[in-house]
Every structure is written in structure tokens, then in C-alpha cells.
Amino acid sequence: MARRLLLALFNLTGAGILAIALWWFVPSLSSAWNNPARHFMGSPGVFTLPRWPLYALMCIGMAATILQFLTFAWSALKGGKA
């Protein structure tokens, strides 16, 4: 019982910390999406790349990891193996 509670607590803590990171990162994605001319990376004249696709992938990855943490926490509370 204690093992399951600790696993659930660990996974909920991970989901919470990553949710805070996602909350703080979304404005960067919004800014890069709304002002694409100002948000490029690379060497001008050689190779440049817009930042919004990278930021979007990072947000998708964080959201998917949050869902995975929540799934593991639910599984631990229900008695499954996480």
C-alpha cells in the first residue's frame, strides 16, 4: 500500500512540475507563432529556421509526458504495476 502511494505521489509530483514548465513555456510558443519574422534561429544568409515548430514540438512532448505521469499515478492508485 505504501509503495503504491509513493509511486502515485512521485508521478503526480512529476506531472505537476512539468505542468508548471508547460504553463511558463506556452507564451514563448504564442509569441513565436504570432511574430514569426522576429523568431528565427540560425545564421542569416546561411541557414535560418523558424522557432515555432520547435516550440510546438516541445509543448506537445511536455503535454504527452504529463498525460503519461497521470496514467502512471492512476495505475499505481488502482493497484496496477507502474
Rank of each mutant, 00 (worst) to 15 (best):
L29S: 13
W33D: 04
K78I: 12
F47M: 12
L5I: 06
F40L: 15
G80W: 00
M41C: 14
P27E: 06
L54V: 14
V26Y: 07
A76K: 02
V26A: 02
R38Y: 11
A73E: 02
P27S: 00
K81A: 05
G16W: 01
A21P: 10
L57A: 14
G80Y: 07
I17W: 06
N11S: 09
L57N: 05
P50Y: 09
A19R: 09
G79Y: 07
F72N: 06
N11V: 07
L77V: 14
P27F: 06
A63H: 11
W23K: 06
W33I: 04
K78A: 15
I17D: 01
M58I: 14
G79I: 08
I66P: 09
G45F: 08
A63M: 10
L18C: 09
P27W: 07
R38G: 12
F69R: 00
W33A: 10
F47P: 06
T48F: 01
F10A: 05
L29Q: 10
I17N: 00
L6P: 00
A15V: 01
I60G: 14
W24C: 08
M1Q: 08
F25G: 12
M62A: 09
G61K: 02
R38F: 11
L54C: 13
A64N: 04
I17L: 08
L57D: 07
